[in-house]
Amino acid sequence: MAAFVIRRLLGMVLVLFAVSVLVFLIFTVIPNGDPAYRMAGKNVTPQVVEQIRKEWGFDQNLFVQYTTTMKKLFSGNLISYENRVNVVEEIIRGLPRTFALAIGAALIWFVVGVAVGLFTAVRAGRWPDRVVTVIALVGISMPVFWLGALASYYLGYKANIFPNGGYAEIADEGFLSWLHHLLLPWLVLATLFIGVYSRVVRSSMLDTINEDYVRTARAKGLSERRVLIRHVLRNSLIPVVTLWGLDFGAILGGGAILTETVFDLQGIGQYFAESIKRLDVPPVMAVTMFGAFFIVAFNTFVDIVYALLDPRIRLE
């Protein structure tokens, strides 16, 4: 176990390094990528551009540029090219927003997804299963930006039941307002995942129901409910939990770009999207590293949980 975690941590360092090099190179080779021109604004003399270049170190070779960027990033002094604010501070500002969105939505989609999956698995092949299956497929097929825009327009702008986007700090506006602002983004983001998860839970349960040990459980005279929960669901959740950990890690790392943007939550995902639009290298680098960290960390975490859930798995 310890050896496993150490190996994974070493692996994580490698992944982060590779990701950072890749992102850095991409942004130096794309056309119109010279940051000095964009920072100098319109109608400038070559001298000004040259001066900016010197000032920001763009005249140095790529290796030096890369190392200084990384040094600044890890010491918390990385400044964005466009609006010249501290990138790390921006990320820290967006952190609670993104986390609130991710944790809430992930809980909702897990609980509802498992419940719907259980329901359809028990009624597999009969009409409730078919109806729910169609609904789940509709849910999967609805893009977040479309569903989010509709929800925000009709429930927020038109009906005025929910606020029309934005985020409320608990400290400033209280818990209820915070909840009120987040409810719609949670549901919209969870909708997509509920569809997927209910299908995964359903098929996993239908596989497990045919296992010999489920037959044994029935032969023991257990109630059908106990057979389903302790023997079928417990075993079918193993793959689902791993899937959930990976998705959750991605969303925590700023992966809910569309939801954050549609509801104007000003989280890390939205910050990332805006930075890409401006070809602003420092924040893109930083958020990418941030996201990669969460994805790798949750991968490791998921493997550990997997071993806890399934005693046959040994981490080596």
């Binding site: 032969a219 005279g221 109630s223």
Partner: peptide, 28 residues
Amino acid sequence: SGNELRRVRGKEIAMIFQDPMTSLNPVH
């Protein structure tokens, strides 16, 4: 009925199966 049968299963009639490798729940 299912309930009557359940009271008998494991109590009056018990069963063992062919493959002991798969007949026990691996997670308990």
